[in-house]
């Protein structure tokens, strides 16, 4: 059984990493031709990135947008998940479907819809919103909230509510229970939701395209522009740099805050004991 598990997991990693590895290999290719095995290694496409300020500024914009969207989505999504999974909320499943279904709107449709709204707002005498970060940020928030809400709700559903009841019966107030019992319990879901929200925002192209202005060029848009001009490994190089930068940021964050560990080893043992106590 464990062997079968390992084989499937290896297959999963093959599916996950085949395409990105091919792109990374291509980034080091000496020419624009993709060769297996490579005829040599070259850094010329990385050097060429210095001529591509839009790619670099796009990466910075996307990182900020992604972090901002993830943080804002946590602020909106965690309370929603609490309301949905603790206590009996009438129409709970419908509310969950309403929160999640905007995900099924194609970026083109949602982008044009938000553009229409902002345009009508401006025509009615409001300030011109298109070209600012507001519609773009709001759109990214809309598509990231569901990931946080759903992940946190799932985590809360998987956790035994008895733990909270015990805390309450031991005299803890509602807020104390929330911060010291409920949220730590939902930590795996919070982390999964935050990571999902970040990558969803970071990778979104269609919305950014329709709500883009000169000031809001995100990385996917800048990549689209670069590919449209010349089809050489420059784009593979910026993608490689992106992964390295983001991985470095994640490692640093992990060192200081343990964000990538869905649950830290020390606490796991403690909760294991706590879980077996009752």
């Amino acid at each position: 059984m464990v062997a079968a598990l390992r084989v499937l997991a290896a297959l999963a990693y093959l599916v996950l990493l085949a395409a990105p590895l091919a792109v990374i290999l291509y980034a080091f290719s000496p020419t624009a031709a993709f060769e297996i095995p490579p005829s040599g290694l070259s850094l010329r496409w990385f050097a060429a990135l210095t001529d591509q300020p839009r790619l670099i500024s796009g990466l910075v914009t996307s990182l900020w947008l992604g972090f901002g969207a993830a943080a804002a989505a946590l602020a909106c999504g965690i309370p929603a998940a609490l309301a949905l999974s603790r206590g009996s909320l009438p129409g709970r499943n419908i509310v969950l479907a309403v929160l999640l279904s905007p995900l099924s709107l194609p970026g083109l449709v949602l982008g044009l819809g938000i553009l229409t709204t902002a345009s009508a707002f401006a025509a009615a005498g409001g300030p011109a919103l298109v070209g600012t970060f507001l519609p773009l940020g709001a759109a990214h928030l809309l598509i990231t909230i569901p990931w946080v809400t759903r992940s946190v709700a799932a985590s809360l559903e998987s956790a035994a509510p008895e733990l909270e009841e015990q805390a309450r019966s031991l005299g803890a107030g509602p807020l104390t229970t929330l911060f010291l019992v409920t949220l730590p319990t939902a930590r795996p879901g919070i982390v999964a939701g935050a990571v999902s929200a970040f990558v969803i925002s970071f990778g979104n192209f269609a919305l950014s395209l329709f709500l883009a202005s000169g000031r809001t060029v995100t990385l996917p848009v800048a990549i689209f522009e670069a590919v449209d001009r010349y089809q050489d490994p420059t784009v593979a190089a910026i993608s490689t740099v992106t992964i390295l930068v983001t991985a470095a940021a994640a490692v640093v964050a992990d060192r200081f805050a343990g964000v990538m560990q869905l649950r830290g080893p020390a606490r796991r043992r403690e909760r294991g004991r706590a879980g077996s106590a009752p």
Binding site: A71, A72, T132, V181, L183, R187
Partner: peptide
């Protein structure tokens, strides 16, 4: 289990709320 996570979730939520405000308001 209550000892280690003290205050961290609260600060995370506060930071999140702050970010949400900045995110939607600041760029407008």
């Amino acid at each position: 289990p209550t000892r280690p996570p003290r205050r961290r979730p609260a600060s995370v939520i506060a930071a999140g709320a702050l970010a949400a405000g900045a995110f939607t308001g600041g760029w407008a």
